[in-house]
Structures are given as structure tokens and as C-alpha cells.
Design a protein around this nucleic acid. Structure first.
Lengths: 214, 214
DNA sequence: CCTACCGATCGGTAGG
DNA sequence: CCTACCGATCGGTAGG
């Protein structure tokens, strides 16, 4: 079906999409092979087993995330600009490919210990910078004294990934469901209001707040 | 294995646990039958197909949720007490059975349209009360003017379910991972700080905020 | 990178 | 609620 790149790359792309949509157990090697346009044993040749393909897909996702982290943290300046840059980049990463958040959530549910180990190895080196930024803000009086830095960062991450993986379905509980952009705009507002002691000096962080009644 | 209740009830309990842990496609009917202590065709007799069992498991979860909603909303009083009662009851519902949040997330990922239809039927009737409460608070000056009621409620729900389904794994990105209670305490603080214009008058909503450094 | 083939397991049925 | 059985599909191998 697809004809761009080598088989390995095309297989990783197809498997990411299929695993994210139907899950690992809900996706047969045959389905991946057909999407790539090769015979099933070809995938075994490239990845060893179906589980090998799974690992390669997860590593590719975390590798891309990891490779964007330094750029985010380095390019940021100080204060709220740094905050907005980091939050915006986090949202953009998962928004760039709608399969990323779904795949990540599925892997956490299916293989918590494997993902935990990957998080420790790939993400843990960067988190002291984030925690240090919050702690410094608190020491300087810009951040609320009650903020629990690690827990606050986790809630932001969980809310962002959760919104992009399950948000459109959860929104169906409302008669006039807010779309993902509106949910993420409110998330940015919530994050800012719960972190900083004073309101933003300039314009709202992203989209303006909208009335809830239709 | 289990010997309490009739086969149907025991099957729903076992399937909830197995589906939440390994997923629907990762759980064989045989595995459910063995957990219940019956032969596989017995489950087919009771639920028609494996998909029938899946529907029964989802309906049972949403039914329990729905049956707790009126009690929450009715027992609450006004202002922050009402807010704390509703948020606390939401968290308690998913905390009471750790499989509930995982099962719900899996079903949203696997069958978005099915869950969307269930949400519209079971949850939508109650959401105007929640939105109305936020809107009233804003009109009376207790709630921030920028709050997007529907999006704010969704973010609270997504963060709560996300924390209870994937939080312990995500926390592994920190050298000293906050446990679920600490994550939920911060979530309550975030919710309150992002909703109300003035800080709580009495004690913090749940556990006191803890320092982030070990 | 392919064709041909393998044993194992799947959900579901027949019949009682 | 059971035993016995069904065709279909699964991941993986042999051999080229």
C-alpha cells in the first residue's frame, strides 16, 4: 500500500497507527504486513517477533519525544514565557500525531513495567530541570507556595495525554461538546492559574476563554 | 476459583478485572471461564458472545457510576462544600476499584463510538447540573470569569481517570515518584485554584501540600 | 524478501 | 451447565 521509505520505517509507521487504533493484541502481524505491502515473514525477518516490532514502535515514540525535550528547555527564556513554551511544546508534540497519545496510554496499560523502565531511562534525566524551575519560581515568589512540583507536572502531563487520547469521547457527556482545542485552551488556563500567584500580564496563553453556554 | 454469587455476577467481576488488566483482545473467554470456575460454553450461554460479555461489563461499570451521581449532587450543600463533595465522590468512585479507570480508558480507546453513545445516554442528563453550578458561581463572583465550565469539568474528569489508570507509571519519570494520593491531592488543589477566585477559607481540601524535594 | 507449512489457540456450535 | 467438536486465525519456522 505505502511506497515511501524502506520496509522497516514503513512497518514502524503502519504498526504505530494500527497499535494505537486497535491495540497490540487487536492487531495481527498479517494486518501490519498488508499495510506495508510485504509478506508476513518479512516483518519477522526485520523485527524477530511481533513483540520485537512492539518494542521498536515504543522506542521510536519515546526517542522522538526525548529528542524534542532539550530543544524545548533550551529555547525557553524565563518566567511565564518559559512556562508557555514548555507547555505549548508538550501539547504540540502529541498533537502533531494523534496516534502518539493513544499508543502511549495503551502501552502503559498493557505493559506498565516496560514503560516504567523506559521512562526511568529516557525521561528521568530531564525532570530535575522541570522540578527545579518550579521550585525556583516558588522561592522567588512567582509560584504558589502550595504547589507540589512533581505532582503538578504529572497532572499537566496526564491531562494533556488524556485529553488527546480520550478527550473527544469524554466530551460526549455534554450536549454541546467542547472540541479538543477548547479543552486544551482550558487546560493551559488551569495550569497557569494553579501555578502562578499573579495572573498573566499580557494576553491569555492560547485561545481566549469561551462562554460555556451555546 | 471464586464461589460467591451466581455465575453471571462472578463472570462480570472476573471479566472486569481481566479486561482492565490485559484488555479485551488480550483476554480469552477461556481465561474468564477458568477464573469463574465454569466451562467456556457456559459463558456463551449467559452472554451470547464474547462481545455480549464485553457490553455487560461496560454497562455494569456505567450503571454503578450513574447510580452514585444523584447521591453526590443531592447530598452536597453550597459553595466550596458542594465542590469538595462532588470532586471527592468522583475520586472515591474510581479509587474504590482500581480496575474501573483502566477499563473505562481501554473501552474509550477500543470502541470510541460505543462509549460515546453510552455517555450521551447515561451521563448527559446530569451534566447540566454541573455546568449550571459553575455558571452560577461565576455569576455570583465566586468563580473565575475565564472558566470554561464544560472544558473545566472535562479536564478534572480526564485528570482523575488518567491519574488512577496511568499515574503510577507516569510518576516513574521522577527520581522520587509521588504516590497516587499525593497526585490526587495536587489535582484537588489545582482544581480549586483554577476555579475559585479566592483561596479556601479553612483547611486545605485534602492532604496538605508536601515539599517536592526528598 | 518470498512460498509453503506448522502447532496452538481462538470464539462459537451441537447435542445433551 | 457440561463434553466434544468445528473452521478460522494466530505467530513463527523451513527453505530458498
Amino acid at each position: 500500500m505505502e511506497d515511501h521509505g524502506d520496509v522497516r520505517t514503513r512497518a514502524l509507521e503502519a504498526a504505530t497507527r494500527l497499535f494505537a487504533t486497535a491495540g497490540f493484541d487487536g492487531t495481527s502481524l498479517q494486518a501490519v504486513a498488508e499495510a506495508v505491502g510485504v509478506a508476513r515473514p518479512t516483518l519477522v525477518y526485520h523485527f524477530g517477533t511481533k513483540d520485537g516490532l512492539r518494542d521498536a514502535v515504543l522506542d521510536r515514540l519515546l526517542g522522538r519525544w526525548q529528542s524534542e525535550l532539550p530543544a524545548i528547555l533550551a529555547a525557553a527564556t524565563t518566567g511565564k514565557d518559559r512556562f508557555r513554551g514548555a507547555v505549548g511544546a508538550l501539547l504540540d508534540f502529541f498533537r502533531a500525531d494523534p496516534h502518539r497519545a493513544r499508543l502511549l496510554v495503551r502501552e502503559i496499560l498493557d505493559r506498565p513495567e516496560v514503560v516504567r523502565a523506559r521512562f526511568e531511562r529516557h525521561l528521568r534525566p530531564w525532570t530535575p530541570l522541570l522540578v527545579g524551575y518550579v521550585d525556583r519560581g516558588r522561592a522567588e515568589g512567582r509560584v504558589h507556595a502550595q504547589v507540589d512540583a512533581e505532582a503538578w507536572i504529572l497532572q499537566l502531563l496526564v491531562a494533556a495525554v488524556g485529553t488527546l487520547s480520550t478527550g473527544t469521547v469524554a466530551a460526549a457527556m455534554f450536549a454541546d461538546p467542547p472540541d479538543v482545542d477548547r479543552q486544551l485552551a482550558e487546560l493551559v488556563r488551569i495550569a497557569e492559574a494553579s501555578l502562578f500567584r499573579v495572573r498573566g500580564d499580557a494576553t491569555p496563553p492560547s485561545a481566549p476563554a469561551r462562554r460555556s453556554s451555546a
